[in-house]
Design a protein around this nucleic acid. Structure first.
Length: 315
RNA sequence: CGCGGAGUGGAGCAGUCUGGUUAGCUCGUCGGGCUCAUAACCCGGAGGUCAGGAGGUUCAAAUCCCCUCUCCGCAC
């Protein structure tokens, strides 16, 4: 089958890595987001998918826009029979969706119709979910609203963070996609409509999402920290400097704390910085201070004086 | 040339603004002691050309000036 792949981040690259190995299929091309000046010094950065595609000598296309038939000439030339989309980051116009004989298949990182949108993996951890999964669906006009073809569940353990869950999801996604391709090839693909009334949305993670409000229970704080680790990382401010948290443990879930002590560092001993939440307290085990490198709580404590008693604040 | 922080014994930091005795702290490490025992405690030791430049200023530079390299945070 002639397959056109569309995707951008790591998650998508993992899927591409798998399907590009199948002898029965040919990846005729890859669409990914254009290189953009990113990072310190505004250096041009290539997407994970682009890097992989270049390694595998797959033609890469990086159109700024697909609208107004902008990609139609290339589409005609590539003539894909199936389009597979995984976190591409652009809306596909109808002329693209309708082109391939077998349609456009999307790999999404949640059990739809829950967590439609850009950041399902992070959001599911932040919300404290214990199960999530991969859904393969036929793409429709709306955002992640298409009819579903197959689902695979993935367990979220208490110690999963964005990275570990992401990796599990990526592995699962590769399997799901290859199975989907097989079903399509055999004509055994069947679809089920989503129940829109159960839909929830996992919006893109913003800076506001990363700020930790300790005025909540310890578990929520922990979920936020792990859901955003190792990137972009949850943060707060200590002595007017930003400090991010790379990992944490729940110290206690009980005990209401007085409003004035919320966010206060109650202890900084060994490898644990204990912070009071509204309910219970959280133990920070890894930090990234502004201008510094990632380090363990123990290292941070060593270099600080009188950590205990200080307060984590909003700016 | 987007903004900013930082390079000091193995680790994390202080000292730099207001140059000047043996470069300090919390750990780690090595040796010894105490102890039924210990990651605890006590004593002692090793380990640094203060990122680099046979640069500049000075009687004197980790500290002030210049150049290079590297790392990092923000923003995008």
């Amino acid at each position: 089958m002639r397959i056109l792949f569309m995707g951008t981040p790591d998650f998508a690259a993992s899927v591409l890595d798998r399907i590009s190995e199948y002898p029965d299929d040919t990846i005729v091309g890859v669409l990914t987001q254009p290189d953009k000046p990113r990072g310190r010094g505004y250096e041009l950065a290539q997407s994970a998918v682009k890097k992989l595609a270049l390694e595998k000598n797959i033609p890469v296309y990086q159109p700024e826009t697909l609208r107004d038939n902008a990609f139609l000439p290339e589409l005609n030339a590539l003539d894909p029979e199936l389009i597979i989309v995984a976190a591409y980051g652009k809306i596909l116009p109808l002329y693209v969706l309708d082109y391939p004989k077998y349609g456009c298949i999307n790999v999404h990182g949640s059990l739809l119709p829950k967590y439609r949108g850009a950041a399902p993996i992070q959001r599911s951890i932040i919300d404290g979910e214990t199960v999530t999964g991969i859904t393969i669906m036929k793409m429709a006009k709306g955002l992640d609203t298409g009819d579903m073809m197959l689902k695979r569940t993935v367990e979220i353990t208490e110690n999963d963070n964005f990275e570990t869950l992401h990796d599990k999801m990526a592995l699962c996604a590769r399997d799901a996609v290859s199975e989907a391709i097989k079903l399509i090839r055999e004509g055994k693909d069947v679809y089920e409509a989503q129940d829109d009334s159960l839909a929830t949305y996992a919006e893109k993670i913003t800076k506001d999402d990363c700020f930790i409000d300790f005025d909540t229970d310890a578990k929520s704080v922990h979920n936020r920290i792990r859901g955003l680790s190792p990137i972009p990382l949850a943060y707060s401010y200590l002595d007017s400097k930003m400090i991010k948290f790379t990992s944490s443990v729940i110290v206690s879930t009980d005990g209401e704390n007085a409003p004035e002590s919320i966010g206060k560092i109650t202890a900084a001993v060994g490898d644990l910085i204990t912070v009071a939440c509204r309910k219970g307290s959280i133990g920070i085990t890894g930090v990234l201070p502004e201008g510094k490198k990632r380090m363990s709580a123990a290292d941070f404590i060593r270099g600080q004086q009188d950590l205990a008693g200080k307060k984590l604040t909003a700016k």
